[in-house]
Amino acid sequence: MTPRPAMFERMGPKFAKAFGNADAVFTVDGVARPAVRVILRVWRETDLAEEQEQAVEGTTHLLAVSASTVPGLASQRDSVA
């Protein structure tokens, strides 16, 4: 992964507040936290399945949030809405 450009270093929550496009509620250790601003990206790709010669669409979602905004968050244990 490439490092973040120098102008964005240490921006953390300010970056998400400026460029965020969604609000998310994180549940950490069973406790719902207040909503925070996040950056949500959706990529859609259409490809031709070789075996059936049929178009297949894939969707990828990426959610970015500053770690300092949601202390204690762990990827496989917690949830987001």
Rank of each mutant, 00 (worst) to 15 (best):
M1W: 00
T2Y: 09
P3K: 00
P3T: 01
P3Y: 01
R4T: 09
R4P: 01
P5E: 07
P5V: 05
P5N: 10
A6I: 11
A6L: 09
A6G: 13
M7P: 01
M7K: 14
M7S: 06
M7C: 04
F8V: 02
F8G: 02
F8Y: 14
E9V: 06
E9Q: 10
M11L: 09
M11N: 00
G12E: 11
G12S: 10
G12R: 08
P13Y: 00
K14A: 09
F15L: 15
F15I: 04
A16R: 06
A16C: 14
A16Q: 04
K17D: 14
K17V: 10
K17E: 15
A18K: 06
A18E: 02
F19P: 00
F19W: 08
G20A: 06
G20M: 08
N21T: 11
N21H: 08
N21V: 08
A22H: 08
A22S: 08
A22N: 09
D23K: 15
D23N: 13
A24N: 00
A24C: 09
V25Y: 00
V25S: 07
F26L: 06
F26R: 05
T27W: 01
V28M: 03
V31C: 03
A32V: 00
A32R: 06
R33G: 08
R33S: 11
R33N: 14
R33K: 15
P34D: 13
A35N: 02
A35G: 04
A35H: 06
V36T: 02
R37N: 05
R37K: 14
R37P: 07
V38E: 02
V38D: 00
I39L: 14
L40E: 03
L40Q: 07
L40S: 04
R41Q: 06
R41H: 04
W43Q: 11
W43C: 04
W43Y: 05
R44T: 15
R44H: 15
T46L: 01
T46E: 06
D47V: 11
D47T: 13
L48M: 15
L48T: 15
A49H: 11
E50V: 08
E50D: 12
E50T: 11
E51H: 14
E51R: 11
E51G: 10
Q52N: 10
Q52M: 06
E53Q: 14
E53G: 14
E53P: 01
E53C: 07
Q54F: 03
V56C: 11
E57W: 02
E57D: 12
G58W: 02
G58V: 03
G58K: 08
G58C: 02
T59M: 15
T60W: 07
L62V: 13
L62T: 15
L63N: 02
L63C: 13
L63Q: 03
A64N: 09
V65H: 09
V65S: 07
S66H: 04
S66W: 01
A67Q: 14
S68R: 07
S68W: 01
S68V: 07
T69P: 01
T69C: 10
T69D: 15
T69G: 13
T69H: 03
T69R: 04
V70E: 05
V70Q: 03
G72F: 08
G72Q: 07
G72C: 12
L73N: 02
A74T: 15
A74D: 10
A74G: 00
S75F: 05
R77V: 13
R77W: 08
R77P: 04
D78L: 11
D78I: 15
D78A: 12
D78Y: 12
S79E: 13
V80Q: 07
V80H: 09
A81Q: 13
A81N: 12
